[in-house]
Design a binder for these strands. Structure first.
Lengths: 346, 346
DNA sequence: TTTAGCACTCAATCACTTAGAGTGCTAACA
DNA sequence: TGTTAGCACTCTAAGTGATTGAGTGCTAAA
């Protein structure tokens, strides 16, 4: 168990290190005005804290640096509830005051604000297709053997893909299929479009359509990609300003990871509700083992729709980051729920 | 005027420097088996070449490095017509053999291949809206005051935006507007949609629509953004492996530039036809003044549709890059023209 | 005109020193 | 018994000087 004083010293040390990125020595701590005991006492305490694994030395005569265990303890036990500055609150609220029409834009802007306020990299996972439902499906022919299929979701999200039409399938068949789809698939969640289609439509299609097999193949291809959520970034290169990223190879590794959406999905899919912090090695990805990620979820009508995150060095301003992130997640939840209800109850 | 031998030496020097990234000395050159004269002779020649500004020293007793003038001369006069290896040709052609349906995908894959073959960063400017024409316009209501507008171009390109509908405008009005638009705006190039609309539709609209002013405002907003071409990247971080990018600030500057599409449009819009090379300071952007860019255009039915580019250090493998780029531009032109014709003559 | 030879320059590297920040330990003190 | 002053010790960072080697420019001879 840690004594009061050890807690205090650990807190001071981590705060100092977060600011300076330099190992913190006993003298530095003792010079603070709210510290009454001497550097020698602090040395003793530091030795104990080190023995317990909360702090480390970079070399035998260096100051101390928080270990990951130390950060974990700090985040779990030593943070006071975050207070946002007026400026920060204004910044965020003026964003939502704008009442932008497009969800994509709201999210992109949120990412921008997050990274601007924190100087870290912000990552937002767009609303999951999970909950959005099909509003309408349309097919527009482009040439004798290609057409564009357009799916409109009730969230206003539009997806389109170009597809090849086998020669054996006639345009009137296609029209029939589309009509049937619009009847049967309306309000089906995008995510289960494929399975619902296979179940619900097979018999109907067989009855009305000549070339059932070709059509079926075509439709299978159409819904092949569960077109996953988009990942939005703000301040992608902000993280490069951190001294821990002077090594260009780390940078490359990280930036490459950013490009792989599938990988990022997993990074952002939090394991528990609320604000979650992953510190250093707690991240599975090699590229992120010098980083910490703070994630929060946003909701629509109480259902989790996506998440927003801040990526910084392990030496991250956790308190402030968590505060800003939580606040924005709330506003995002409120805004999107409002909007969704206006769509739904229409 | 340069003598034969000076040309030869300059060529050797640049080739060597492109490979090694190290200043080249007279001895290094003299050791090559196709060099018959001594290092002392080469020193004299190097001194002359330096005086003429084709090469530089990094310090008073260092080997020589090509100047930008030197690279320029090299590119303009010393390159033999590029020969692609079988492997390279196969790689590129197997890409186009796939016959992907979506233009976006073709382009994305091209970017991938380019960066893989060259280890530089590839940048492709998607087909310009310039030549593609409107095929159909659709409006799908989302709630009582919002709707999604979908524009489908004859290239298969789909654009959509969500818009607010003023309360004074009725759904039937909207339908009328859409009908009129589909009549009048079909086959109008996307780029001139707005102006054509203003000219052609004003009188018709006034006649048929009650709230002409509101509707007009709405439409103006709709076409406000000339939704510009997309920029595709391959190997965004490849350039970081080059030794000239060990400075993290240069990296940041460059990567930030990549994020700004509008800036990149100008980078990629070439001044003349054919394969163009911009070396170092010839680039306007500060972030790219250590870089060279090779650009080539691709065409549809003889009309320029976009460009593809390779970004590397000034010490770039110009000959190979130009070869690969030109070859791919050709194939892209062929593929897209084929496809476009199948759309157009349908 | 070419080349061998030589003096000279400079960056890079290594060994060495010094300064300073930090530690751990011990002994004295409250 | 907990705290602190004092001191020896450690290690890094920064600076100095010597050495090496790759390179140059110049000169004089072939």
């Amino acid at each position: 168990m840690l004594t009061e004083r050890q807690l205090f010293i650990l807190q001071l040390l981590i705060n100092d290190y977060i600011q300076t990125a330099e190992p913190v020595g006993s003298r530095t701590i003792s010079k603070r005005e709210d510290v009454t005991f001497s550097s020698a006492t602090i040395r003793n305490e530091l030795a104990d804290l080190e023995e317990m694994g909360y702090i480390e030395k970079t070399h035998s005569s260096s100051g101390r640096v928080p270990s990951e265990k130390g950060y974990r303890f700090y985040v779990d036990n030593l943070l006071s509830p975050p207070v946002l500055s007026k400026n920060e609150v204004n910044n965020i609220q003026s964003l939502f005051a704008e009442r932008m029409v497009e969800v994509e834009k709201v999210i992109q802007q949120s990412a921008g604000i997050l990274s601007e306020l924190t100087q870290y990299t912000s990552i937002i996972l767009g609303p999951e297709v999970f909950e959005t439902k099909l509003r309408q499906i349309q097919i527009i022919p482009l040439s004798k053997d290609t057409a564009v299929v357009i799916l409109v979701a009730d969230s206003g999200h539009v997806e389109n893909r170009t597809m090849k039409i086998p020669p054996s399938v006639s345009m009137s068949d296609i029209e029939k299929v589309v009509n049937i789809m619009n009847e049967r698939l309306k309000d089906v969640p995008l995510i289960s479009l494929k399975s619902t289609m296979m179940k619900e439509m097979a018999t109907v299609l067989k009855k009305h359509i000549e070339n059932y097999n070709e059509v079926n193949m075509m439709l299978e291809n159409l819904f092949l990609y569960t077109n996953a959520e988009k990942v939005y970034y703000g301040g992608k290169t902000n993280i490069l300003t951190q001294p821990e990223f002077k090594d260009i190879n780390k940078v490359r590794l990280l930036l490459n990871t950013f490009e792989q959406d599938e990988v990022m999905y997993n990074v952002l899919r939090p394991e528990k509700n609320g604000i979650e912090v992953k510190i250093g090695q707690e991240n599975d990805l090699e590229a992120m083992q010098n980083c910490s990620i703070v994630t929060a979820d946003y909701f629509i009508e109480g259902k989790r729709m996506g998440s927003i995150a801040l990526l910084g060095p392990t030496r991250m301003e956790y308190q402030r980051s968590m505060g800003i992130l939580g606040f924005l997640a709330n506003d995002l939840t409120r805004t999107l729920t409002d909007r969704y209800q206006s769509f739904k109850h229409w």
